[in-house]
Design a protein around this nucleic acid. Sequence first.
DNA 1: CCTAGTTACGTACACCGTACGGAGTCAGGT
DNA 2: ACCTGACTCCGTACGGTGTACGTAACTAGG
Lengths: 246, 246
Amino acid sequence: MTPSGRSAEPEVIWARPQRAGRGPRPAHSRDSIAAEAVRIADAEGIEAVSMRRVATGIGAGTMSLYNYVPRKEDLYELMVDAVSGEYEFTPPSGDWRADLLALAHRTRELMHRHPWLPRLLSPVYGFGPNALRYLEHCLACLAPLGVPGGEKLELVAAVNGSVATFVAAELALAERARSLPWSEAAEQGVRTAWLGSRLATGEYPLLAAALTGGHPVAEAEADMDAVFDRSVSRLLGAWEQPAHTP
Amino acid sequence: MTPSGRSAEPEVIWARPQRAGRGPRPAHSRDSIAAEAVRIADAEGIEAVSMRRVATGIGAGTMSLYNYVPRKEDLYELMVDAVSGEYEFTPPSGDWRADLLALAHRTRELMHRHPWLPRLLSPVYGFGPNALRYLEHCLACLAPLGVPGGEKLELVAAVNGSVATFVAAELALAERARSLPWSEAAEQGVRTAWLGSRLATGEYPLLAAALTGGHPVAEAEADMDAVFDRSVSRLLGAWEQPAHTP
DNA sequence: CCTAGTTACGTACACCGTACGGAGTCAGGT
DNA sequence: ACCTGACTCCGTACGGTGTACGTAACTAGG
């Protein structure tokens, strides 16, 4: 009546039992599937992760994978939660600002290790076990902050959103270059050439000043750490005093 | 030697001339192609936008489209820039905080009108004509702010990143529901049921308190405007005083 | 006018997610 | 102890995707 992998009902992958009572014991585990998908995505980009590829990667037939992962979206959820398990939490120090800044750095490192993460994180993939652990830890760090719990979650979401977009921008060129038949430098070259030709028209004087005035792109990479730190610090600083609405 | 649509060299779509000198006059325009793609994405979601679909939509053969748009990624760039043209800029008021807050609201409305925008915006699609106009206008609004131009761009990026993640979260459920065979309510139901069952274990006391303590999800929608306004205001407020690094 | 470069587009290929059905395997109820 | 029903495994197949390639029609520059 309701064969396990064939239902057309909504379902949360985490609620589905790993081992059903009845049939033969499964030859694979959810963890090993997630690990294989992460391995492929790290090595060849998220677009290389296909059901066929993951299945053959763990030595299974393509359609066998659907016994473990009913839809491809669920595979993404498994991946996100798997790498979320890489966080190593240290007890809150009492300085919530420092704690959250350090966490943001860990998140950035995580996203550098798994460049597909920002992309997959943007829709709210929902509340796997490691995500719950992470949120609980954030709230523990935010205990000294005197705002209601709901706003603390807003703060965490705002920080993570900023980190995700920051790292996505950081990685945009490199990630694009992966799936392109030419080099990253060549791509970069034609793009800055185009931008330069537009700026040279004089139609965008402020933009031209802002782009050429500061750092000349060469030292930009070295500054990235500083820019990141400053930008997250600013965001956190905005929570120090109550929201200011004139 | 270098046939227009067949090159394997990197290329920025904006640098490619719309009309080449030599051949027959093109039967379509870049604008009409972008408009068709936007129409499809608005009506049926971004995943419905395929080269075939857009081509038949404007009454062309599939492969003819490749004369205008060398890769699908370029189609996305056209779409982003096309809707960026919907901004109607008013002259800077002198209050940069108010101006940028208003712009953020326009961006949010734009993303509600085109729910696929946050997704496509996350990697830095590059500097089409309307994006350049937008940036120039932002810088004009930020003229009263006494920081270097580079940091102004950081501010704009931070605001846009926050808006994008905010709206992405707002739209996540509705957008997910579009491509799913069951209703949004059913999906929502099983997800909150799962979350409730996890919270009931007592493993996440802070999270449980934060989620149940505040608004009971029902009135959350009505509050979205206020939450958005407050969150952007906070971010802007963080730029009032110099970055604070203890 | 010629011809080179461009437009238009049909065909084809490799790949994708996944519906379906059949065979093998095991636990629970009788 | 056996049967039966649920479950695992997986081959096949379908309708879709992006796009490489080849060919025919057309048009502007020399």
